[in-house]
């Protein structure tokens, strides 16, 4: 595969690319028992584990305002890749360049404090994203309106249904105006009406220059949100391009066998 995006940092700054992923690989050491892990720390020149390569040599580019779907069966390495881009996990080798603020909606309700009201939790998430408090306050009305959960906005989040949690999280993350938004299966939770609202809102953000990375098992959602898609199989990219051929290929491909 060839890449048009500039390889050097100065060129990347000037270009209209937002994400460059270059030769990312991730190996997880699999230890047979915890003692082996300890031994490995002490005796560094021996090897006490089996290697499991969750990602192998993954590369792609994303422009500003591009929305890209990531599809693949369970265990194909999608979530690992997103965790690496979000910064919660380090790659074993390779490089990623990111331009602007990254927001990641990974698991529903992560970061929420159950005894706090929705409104207070907006501040919690804001603090987690390092957004100043007054900026969060400024966005509060928009978030409340977008979440659309009525009186529950001022009730503790432990009373929320999973759909309501998803709505609130999605509202917060998209209203904080990130430059790169990573969504892992989050949109699936809401009802049809909420999905439509998300679609409208995200499309508007994408038009303003947001880059969207969306992981989903539902071809329908990927088709609605994304122009391009990347298909993963066993930690490798097997297709990278327009969304329709990508989804066709995804439907044909087989999941990683259980015997492996």
């Amino acid at each position: 595969m060839s890449y048009k995006a500039p390889a050097d940092l100065e060129g990347f700054k000037q270009s209209d690319y937002a994400v460059l992923v270059r030769n990312i690989s991730k190996m997880f050491p699999l230890y047979r028992n915890p003692m082996d892990r300890l031994k490995q720390q002490v005796f560094r020149d021996k090897k006490y584990y089996d290697e499991f390569w969750a990602l192998q040599n993954v590369s792609f580019d994303m422009k500003r305002g591009e929305s890209r779907g990531i599809v693949g069966h369970n265990g194909a390495g999608k979530s690992t890749l997103l965790q690496i881009i979000a910064g919660t996990m380090m790659p074993t080798s390779g490089k990623i360049f990111l331009k602007g603020r990254v927001a990641a909606i990974m698991t529903m309700g992560s970061g929420f404090k159950p005894d706090f009201t929705g409104r207070e939790n907006v501040y919690v998430l804001g603090a987690l994203m390092n957004v100043p408090r007054d900026q969060v306050s400024g966005q509060m009305d928009r978030i409340q309106e977008f979440a659309g959960i009525g009186i529950f906005f001022d009730k503790p989040t432990r009373m929320y249904s999973s759909g309501m949690l998803a709505r609130l999280a999605f509202a917060v993350y998209t209203c904080m105006e990130p430059d790169i938004l990573i969504v892992d299966e989050a949109i699936n939770v809401g009802d049809a009406e909420f999905k439509r609202k998300c679609l409208e809102h995200v499309s508007a953000l994408v038009a303003q220059g947001l880059s969207l990375l969306l992981v989903s098992h539902s071809p329908l959602i990927v088709e609605q949100f994304c122009q391009t898609a990347t298909v993963f199989e066993r930690g490798k990219i097997i297709f990278d391009g327009d969304v329709n051929p990508a989804l066709e290929l995804y439907n044909k491909s087989r999941p990683r066998s259980n015997s492996q």
Binding site: L9, M90, P91, T92, G94, K95, K99, G100, D179
Partner: peptide, 11 residues
């Protein structure tokens, strides 16, 4: 100019 973040392998 937007901030650039580089993620690379574990040093």
């Amino acid at each position: 100019m937007q901030k650039i973040k580089i993620i690379s392998e574990e040093p």
